[in-house]
Amino acid sequence: MRPRGRSVDLNFYAQLLLNGIVIGVIYALIAMGLSLIFGVLEIVNFAHGEFYMLGAMCAYFLTVNWGFGYWPAVLIVTAVAISLGCVLYEALLGSLRGESFERSILLTLGLSMVLQNGAVFLFTTTPKMMATGLSYSNIIVGELRLPLSRLYALGLGLAAFAALYLTLYRTRVGKAMRGVAQNRDAALMVGIDPRAVSRLAVAIGIGLSGLAGAALAPVYAVHPLMGFSFVFKAFAIIIIGGLGNVSGAAIAAVMLGILESLVGGFLPLVMVDALAFISMIAVLLLRPQGLFGRGVRV
């Protein structure tokens, strides 16, 4: 009896861990974009969650209404999100300077209200299930049942990590971006064009958000208010990881995902929801600059 019970336990833990990692990677996609935009532009993008919602919506319509496959849909959504990011920067965020912090929040909040309530107006709040073959496929490894849709989301997230890492650490413009995030004035002095860098940061940030939405569309129900509840965790994550610290946000996101999943296996739902907030307050009280220090002056 005993060995069997332990293997069931292990199985249960492994399942929780996997779910935690998947959700953590998706948190990371959203939080890294948010953190990148804050680091480079000193703007907190309150509309960030809406681009996640738009990504999921687009993926839903592309696959269900227009018959695209999962992978082409993800590609299209990511490309559209990146272009949307450029448009967003040119139309709204480009006119803001760092000192108008409250203005930037109100501006992006206004955008969030338009996108979210516009989506409610057009599509109603009824959740839509993106029921493709993918949603019900599993891979069985030993006694573990791994839903294919979650594995795909995990793979996409990791691929996006790798791409972002290569961009930030291996390309000239990526180095410029980190330079601006670390020391704005010094970066301006060595001749980095702040507009080009900022535009790219917003494009990448929104692109990651859209990608996250598309990747998760087969896992969760798609509805206009989905970005809202997600982004509040992303805010907690960027404070925990250190405002403007992109890798800190990624690590904090995966940690939170795993922790939430494990806590969710044993404690009531309300504890799962409160976890991100309580961690944030604890970090603020004990280590205000974030677990991994800050990448930017605040």
Binding site: V44, F101, E102, F228, F277, M280, L284, V298
Partner: peptide, 15 residues
């Protein structure tokens, strides 16, 4: 920490 943090925390709190 900063007024940035206050804005973010206050929003998280409301949600």
């Amino acid at each position: 920490l900063s007024r940035h943090a206050f804005a973010i925390v206050s929003l998280s709190f409301a949600l």
